[in-house]
Design a binder for these strands. Structure first.
Lengths: 224, 224
DNA sequence: GGGTTTCTTCAAAATTTCTACCAATTTAGT
DNA sequence: ACTAAATTGGTAGAAATTTTGAAGAAACCC
């Protein structure tokens, strides 16, 4: 899952980025209004964290922009505790949530989780696709009611697939998603093969059909 | 879609090439000014990635050359973050976009995609021609709503046809677009025949009319 | 620290795609 | 209608990619 952090205070942005990376999110940052607009126009994110005060503009304008030009990107507004005005305006403009600074990491994670859940998983805590069922809060998986033990990476992989059903996910994206540091995983995708294999195997032993299709030369796709 | 990567730092060029290959692009590289000019004169590309600093010349001169002698090849300039001058000059000279180094692979892919979409497909993400529909983001093809599985080269071929509807495409151009190493494929077009044949067959089995007309002695043409 | 689990690397086997080749067919020009 | 060149369609070997199992590293848990 991909997060954009729009925040001009660099140390805070990096702090958040580091924490969320450890929670299996892929993070990017934008420190200015201009940079934020650029990234929003070019990419899509699962969730955007939006600081209201930016050196060269107002975060609410960024939000307006997001909602104008498209998109179903989730938005969580970050701002000072007492800026009630911003909060009201933000939610009116279509923000998904509001988090006053300072906040706990765990609280941020919970809000992001909730936004993503709403966006990809019909807002349910338990997401079911055919015979597979995922408890997003407990982070457990069952197949036909029987618990299935997955490792962290396998679970991350499964969520990525389920959140992108029907879309082809390039190997490089899988590598990025699994590897945390998107270093030089560019030429070595062996570990992706390994994890996909293991996930497939476990799902299969659990008795599911094979929903993970290979897109030769590109990546994989979840087909329900 | 065919990309030319003009970049003297070999490892970077290879990185990019590998990544873009995984995203359905056909890549070639040029490491020097001379090599770049040579390839540009000989072939055409859908998008050219242009490093400004080359060991034997300036990338802006390459850009000038591109715009002089032809072409609707899209150009994205790659250069150091603070080279504002180059950016301005580049855009004045007709570059389509500018990407400061270092950049994320996904960011590069997004810019290339945007250039190509603008150039060939009226800025749309899903492109439909009669009963055929191509999702440029997911890289999938459907015929009358039924998914059609194409290989990389077949997909590249289809995109080339759809991007040039009504125009006769010479065999040599098809060979260029399909050939990974632009060896002396100039006299041997057997592999073009093969891929056109396979694409025709799959489209036909999918139930489309035969839109690919043979222009005897010249090439092929997509006729809607 | 020892034992267990998980992650990554490696190499051979299987699969998919690509290219070369050949015979049959079509085309353009005479 | 005949000829030479170009294209089609099939097949097979080459090349590239993925699968698979096993083993070595690394991380984790008492």
């Amino acid at each position: 899952m991909k997060i954009l952090i729009i925040e001009d205070e660099r140390s805070l942005a990096e702090d958040i980025s580091r924490y969320l990376s450890g929670e299996h999110y892929l993070c990017e940052t934008a420190a200015t209004y201009a940079e934020a607009i650029e990234k929003i126009e070019l990419y899509s994110y699962d969730c955007i964290l939006l600081d209201i005060m930016l050196p060269d503009g107002n975060g609410l304008d960024v939000l307006k922009h997001i909602k104008e030009i498209k998109k179903r990107d989730g938005v969580i507004i970050l701002s000072a505790k007492d800026a009630i005005d911003d909060r009201v305006k933000g939610l009116q403009l279509g923000a998904d949530d509001y988090l006053p600074k300072p906040f706990h990491h765990s609280e941020l994670a919970a809000r992001i989780f909730s936004v993503i859940r709403r966006k990809y998983f019909d807002n349910a805590n338990v997401f079911t696709a055919n015979e597979i069922s995922v408890d997003l809060l407990a982070n457990t998986v069952t197949v036909n009611g029987i618990p299935l033990h997955l490792t962290k990476k396998e679970y991350a992989l499964l969520l990525l697939f389920l959140g992108n059903r029907g879309k082809t996910i390039p190997k490089s994206a899988l590598a990025e998603h699994l590897s945390g540091d998107l270093a030089d995983m560019l030429d070595n995708h062996d570990f992706v093969y390994a994890h996909v294999k293991n996930l497939k195997k476990k799902l299969n032993e659990g008795g599911t059909k094979n929903y993970i299709k290979t897109m030769y030369g590109i990546g994989y796709k979840w087909e329900s």
